[in-house]
């Protein structure tokens, strides 16, 4: 446990937050190495199943980031997504997921500094939670 580092499943919209991560990279900005980035066409592509699946397979945190409201490449995907996310977060925390494990943000492709800032905050909050156990299966996987 001493060398434990949180694993954070990170779902980034291709048109904004993914670009921001890219820009942060080429700009040589430093941010924690805990993120396992999954590129999606839009924040609305995120299904609650992805989030549960991430936790079930050992993610200590999940971070979802899309375009700012009004800037979605598909015009309104993130508006619909926001409603789904609000209910998802509410229900997950209702059944006992700690509030520091699931994060959302709006980051445009020009906001490399915001990306780094949010990445730092997310990593810190998830780290403070310690290893996630809640959704991890105690028995071996059977079909």
């Amino acid at each position: 446990m001493e060398n434990w580092e949180p694993k954070i499943a990170t779902f980034l919209c291709n048109w904004c937050s993914y670009g921001a991560a890219d820009l942060a990279g080429v700009s040589r900005f430093q941010y924690p190495p805990n993120f396992r980035i999954i590129r999606l066409p839009c924040s609305a592509r995120v299904s609650p199943k992805f989030v549960l699946s991430a936790f079930r397979h050992g993610a200590d945190g999940v971070w979802i980031s899309g375009c700012h409201p009004g800037d979605c490449h598909y015009l309104e995907g993130n508006y619909y997504a926001r409603r789904k996310f609000a209910l998802l977060k509410g229900l997950l925390e209702h059944i006992g997921l700690e509030a520091g494990r699931l994060h959302f943000s709006w980051i445009s492709s020009a906001e490399a500094t915001k990306f780094v800032d949010v990445a730092n905050r997310v990593a810190k909050e998830v780290e403070a939670m310690g290893p996630a156990r809640f959704f991890i299966k105690s028995r071996a996987e059977v079909a």
Binding site: K49, R56, R139
Partner: peptide, 20 residues
């Protein structure tokens, strides 16, 4: 998306998604 056993995690996943 959800295992078929009655492992508590599978059952919780079932109930979570059904409700959602």
């Amino acid at each position: 998306w959800v295992g078929k056993s009655i492992d508590p995690t599978d059952t919780l996943t079932f109930h979570f998604l059904r409700a959602y």
